[in-house]
């Protein structure tokens, strides 16, 4: 019974959202507001149960891990953002997070996303694909080199870079279309199969 009610609610809300494709209307607005409200409530309760309690509350107050007072204080300082007069206090927590994250990621991120990529791009010229890759990388980089006027050889290479960028954007667009159509198929399967029982 609960499943049936759930399916009906989900199906009607899906149709309310789809109704925007015709034009904006109160049913769409209702579904949109409901989604935002339910999401906010869901995430607050989920994060309390699965993040705050197991990572801070239980270890600090039930297991006596006193070192966790530091993140508790930093967390409380972050909440100060809600009070305009003392909102500046939250900057300390933000600074802490930014500092830790930068230090944590800097070397690994550079190694994984820059050094390894450059190495793989430049070393192997045995295949035509690698040559195209290197030409694409260099011409793309030259397009973003703004310290000299794009004329002559530099201008031609930058123009080639634009072509490579356009191909990359086209590939991204194609993948985005594929993703959106997949989600539409998922919804249609739900409406026609799970809700109406027309698909087997």
């Amino acid at each position: 019974m609960a499943d049936t009610i759930g399916i009906w609610v989900a199906a009607l809300l899906t149709l309310f959202i789809f109704s925007f494709l015709y034009k904006d209307n109160p049913l769409y607005k209702m579904a949109e507001h409901l989604f935002i409200g339910v999401s906010a409530g869901y995430w607050v309760s989920y994060l309390y149960q699965n993040v705050f309690k197991p990572n801070l509350y239980n270890p600090l107050f039930h297991q006596g891990k006193l070192l966790l007072i530091i993140p508790l204080i930093l967390g409380l300082m972050m909440v100060m953002r809600l009070f305009p007069k003392i909102g500046w206090i939250s900057r300390w927590s933000i600074a802490f997070i930014v500092g830790i994250t930068s230090g944590y990621y800097l070397i690994t991120y550079l190694q994984t996303n820059a050094v390894d990529q450059v190495r793989a791009s430049l070393l192997n010229f045995s295949q035509i694909n690698n040559i195209i890759l290197v030409v694409g990388v260099l011409s793309g980089l030259i397009y973003f080199f703004f310290s000299a006027e794009h004329r002559g050889v530099l201008g031609g290479t930058a123009k080639l870079g634009i072509w490579f960028l356009m191909v990359a954007f086209g590939a991204s667009f194609g993948y985005t279309v594929m993703a959106r159509i997949s989600l539409l198929i998922g919804r249609m399967q739900f409406l026609l199969g799970d809700w109406l029982g027309l698909l087997h």
Binding site: T108, Q111, D116, Q117, R119, Y175, A179
Partner: peptide, 30 residues
Amino acid sequence: VMFAHDRFHVPMAAGCTAVSAPMLYPYLQT
């Protein structure tokens, strides 16, 4: 990729949404 593969050297593969695929393709050639 950054931590499990590059730092701890565990071989890995992935599946992703189509939207994020172009961002992950560079990890294949490396």
